[in-house]
Computed example of a mutant assay.
Amino acid sequence: MFFGRRFPVEKEEETLISTEIYSCSDDSCIGWMRKNFASDDLLCPMCGSTMDSGVKDLPEI
C-alpha cells in the first residue's frame, strides 16, 4: 500500500511582527512572556526573578 499525497501541501507563510516582551533578568533562566499577557507584579513565572522589557520578532496572534 502507498499512503503518499498526490499534491504537495502548501504551507502558509508566518508573518513576524515586532512584539514587546518581558524577559527574565536571571542569566540561567530562559523565561519570557508577551507584554499583553504579563501579570501585574512582573515576576518570572519560572524562577520568580524580576523581568526586563525588550522586543522580539514573533508570529502574529
Results as ranks from 00 to 15, higher is better:
residue 2 F to D: 15
residue 2 F to L: 09
residue 2 F to M: 07
residue 2 F to A: 12
residue 3 F to P: 05
residue 4 G to T: 04
residue 4 G to D: 05
residue 4 G to V: 02
residue 5 R to H: 10
residue 5 R to S: 12
residue 5 R to M: 09
residue 8 P to R: 05
residue 9 V to F: 10
residue 10 E to S: 05
residue 11 K to N: 03
residue 11 K to I: 11
residue 12 E to H: 09
residue 12 E to C: 02
residue 12 E to G: 04
residue 14 E to Y: 04
residue 14 E to Q: 12
residue 16 L to W: 05
residue 17 I to H: 06
residue 18 S to F: 06
residue 18 S to I: 06
residue 19 T to E: 15
residue 20 E to A: 09
residue 21 I to Y: 04
residue 22 Y to P: 04
residue 23 S to K: 15
residue 23 S to R: 12
residue 26 D to H: 10
residue 26 D to Y: 10
residue 26 D to S: 13
residue 27 D to Q: 13
residue 28 S to V: 07
residue 28 S to C: 06
residue 28 S to F: 12
residue 29 C to I: 00
residue 30 I to T: 14
residue 31 G to H: 15
residue 31 G to I: 00
residue 31 G to A: 14
residue 33 M to K: 04
residue 34 R to T: 13
residue 34 R to C: 11
residue 35 K to V: 05
residue 35 K to W: 11
residue 35 K to Y: 14
residue 35 K to I: 03
residue 38 A to Y: 01
residue 41 D to W: 03
residue 41 D to H: 05
residue 43 L to E: 07
residue 43 L to G: 02
residue 43 L to I: 10
residue 44 C to D: 01
residue 44 C to E: 00
residue 45 P to K: 08
residue 46 M to T: 10
residue 46 M to S: 11
residue 46 M to V: 11
residue 46 M to A: 10
residue 47 C to I: 00
residue 48 G to E: 03
residue 48 G to A: 02
residue 49 S to V: 01
residue 49 S to E: 14
residue 51 M to K: 00
residue 51 M to T: 01
residue 52 D to E: 14
residue 52 D to Y: 05
residue 53 S to R: 07
residue 54 G to D: 13
residue 55 V to A: 05
residue 56 K to P: 01
residue 56 K to W: 05
residue 57 D to N: 14
residue 57 D to M: 12
residue 58 L to C: 05
